[in-house]
Amino acid sequence: MKLLDYTHPAPATNLALDESLLLVAEEGTGGEVLRLWELPSYAVVVGSGGSVPIDVNREACAADGVPVLRRASGGGTVLLGPGCLCFSVVLGYTHAPGLGDIPASNRYVLGRVLNALKSVAPAAVEGSSDLTVGGVKFSGNAQQRKRNFFLHHGTLLCGFDLGLVPKYLNPPERQPEYRRDRPHAEFVRNLPAGVAEVKRLLVEAWAPDGEYAPVPLARAEELVADKYARDEWTLRR
């Protein structure tokens, strides 16, 4: 596994880069990677099957210039920005037993993340792939899968402005049972650690053995033009 600590200035290109890392691994020109990134500005990102009209306060986003995007993986709608560390892992199914199964692969990846964070907070997995402390969520996760490799990516709130979540996101269309209809303000929290410390802990836990190169930015820009920047993709639901 290699390390890619890289954030592109364009939010859509960051989403496309995650997918590009999966695609080049599947094609045999890339490989396993841990990517860490943090947007310098805010963006709303809807899951592949999510509903923009239901999940997003589009008027507030438009008024503040917050872009609304759609990713290629599942999961719920999230607000990204400063203080929200994104991590992305591309693994082959042969990396560990059971990774061909979605629940098992979630347990494997999230177990590594929990182990990384054990010195920071007594966290647990709730729902299908949320990380929580005391039943309050600080991390959401999703996957995109191909024949030989899968992408698992997630968010880790580390000093995020939580007051912006209910401003730009409506109550979600689908909720895990443990949420119990709690509003955003009661359902999300920050880890008691900053982005730099959490980055260090993740790198120690995954132990990549070098820097990832070359970065498939040209492939990412193709995906932006073909999909991520198109209303037909973002507003399809």
Rank of each mutant, 00 (worst) to 15 (best):
26 E>F: 02
109 V>I: 14
24 V>W: 12
198 V>T: 03
187 F>C: 06
86 C>T: 07
140 G>T: 04
198 V>I: 13
218 A>H: 14
221 E>F: 08
125 V>I: 14
106 N>K: 03
110 L>I: 04
82 P>D: 00
159 G>C: 10
66 V>G: 04
12 A>D: 14
213 A>S: 15
235 L>N: 10
157 L>A: 03
62 A>G: 10
32 E>M: 04
69 L>A: 04
149 F>H: 15
178 Y>T: 02
31 G>D: 13
94 T>R: 14
176 P>T: 07
179 R>E: 10
217 L>M: 11
108 Y>E: 04
73 S>M: 11
209 D>G: 11
186 E>K: 15
166 P>Y: 10
193 A>M: 05
172 P>V: 05
31 G>A: 07
134 G>P: 03
30 G>N: 07
43 A>P: 06
149 F>K: 07
185 A>I: 13
92 G>I: 11
169 L>W: 05
232 E>V: 08
99 L>D: 02
80 L>W: 05
224 V>M: 04
4 L>P: 00
197 E>N: 06
213 A>L: 10
220 A>W: 06
137 K>Y: 08
171 P>A: 02
18 D>S: 05
202 L>W: 01
112 R>G: 03
34 L>I: 05
49 G>C: 06
101 D>V: 11
65 G>N: 09
219 R>V: 14
179 R>P: 04
222 E>A: 11
12 A>S: 12
120 V>I: 14
69 L>M: 08
163 G>S: 09
157 L>H: 08
237 R>H: 11
61 C>F: 12
148 N>Y: 12
51 S>Q: 01
64 D>W: 07
205 A>G: 03
130 D>N: 13
237 R>N: 13
30 G>T: 01
231 D>E: 15
115 N>T: 13
169 L>Q: 02
29 T>S: 15
70 R>E: 11
226 D>P: 02
163 G>L: 03
35 R>M: 00
184 H>S: 10
174 R>W: 07
95 H>R: 14
147 R>W: 04
143 Q>G: 09
60 A>P: 09
157 L>M: 12
72 A>E: 13
125 V>F: 05
78 V>D: 00
237 R>K: 15
107 R>V: 09
108 Y>F: 15
137 K>C: 02
136 V>L: 08
91 L>E: 10
107 R>S: 13
14 N>M: 00
66 V>E: 10
117 L>V: 07
149 F>I: 06
125 V>Q: 13
204 E>P: 06
28 G>A: 10
175 Q>E: 15
178 Y>V: 06
107 R>N: 11
222 E>M: 12
169 L>H: 02
9 P>D: 05
161 D>L: 08
219 R>Q: 15
173 E>S: 11
143 Q>K: 02
157 L>P: 00
6 Y>H: 14
172 P>K: 03
91 L>V: 01
198 V>Q: 06
221 E>V: 08
178 Y>G: 04
229 A>G: 14
9 P>V: 07
120 V>M: 02
97 P>W: 02
